[in-house]
Amino acid sequence: MMRLIAWRLVQLPLILLAIYTVTFTLAWLIPGNPLEQGEGRRPPAEIEAAMLEQYKLDNPFTFYWDYLGKATGVSYVLGQHDRPFDLGPSLRHENWSVNEILAAGLPVSFTLGLSAILIACIVGVAAGVIGGARPGTAYDLVTLLIALVGISLPTFVIGTVLLVVFAVWLEVLPVVGWGSVKHLVLPALTLAAPFAAYIARLTRYGMIEQRSVDYVRTARAKGVGNWTITLRHALKNALLPVVSYLGPATAMAMTGSFVVEKVFAVPGIGTHFVNAVLSKDLTLIMGVVLTYSTILVLLNLVVDVLYRWIDPRIEQ
């Protein structure tokens, strides 16, 4: 286990460097000038050139090395820069540094993503058990149908419907904003929907598979009650695929909440990320990608560790 962790940590900087290089190349190739407004007046040519030079956007190699040095803290160690891990100022909102933007947005995205996954686990597993315990019955059909809706409907539809029903008609929850559990409910539910649906299906298939396995038959022969079999014996093994899905799902929920963040005006990172790409805000793109990749790699590691811990057979 320790070897696994150590090995992964050694890989981390190399993976990040590769991601940095690929992302930078792609982001650089996006056409257009990040310092230019989409519409209307164009500043004089010499000012445009000066702006590009100011942010080192006139030469990809200068930018690549300069940014790498500042972001990793090498420039700081060498005494060329006054701060370590400086991800630069946002090119589209020059009063803000990317570090500040990430520090403000990451906790929000984390809270939202984790709440959504928690909801998805509880709802998904419950629905899967109800359906999988009695396949073919009305219970099964209803949960399957709900799962189908959850997977098929895009989040912006679910989000808008929830928003209109709970915030505008019933007025029980706030429309937009962030700051209390009340603000969390609708976005978390919306974000949870597709994950919950997927988990429900995984659990259901797991349950059905386990029902015909020998140890379940033995338990039944012993006269163990139906619910005890389901919850104590079958569920435990049926959940394994869910656990392996949880790793990427958590990462996706924490990083891919763009639509939900936009619909509910949640100040997370997802919207900044997409907008940064649209407006070619290079520093923000690089900052967000580097931060996310670090988190993803670490999360995958956590899942691998968890997996081995739940199912000791894997280690052998």
Partner: peptide
């Protein structure tokens, strides 16, 4: 089973730990 439950509880604890909600009411 206990382990799975612990894992889920751990997730919940992580959530509570990161529950970063500041007061926006101005």
């Amino acid at each position: 089973m206990a382990r799975v439950l612990t894992a889920i509880l751990l997730l919940g604890a992580l959530l509570c730990g990161s529950l970063y909600l500041d007061d926006p009411s101005v």
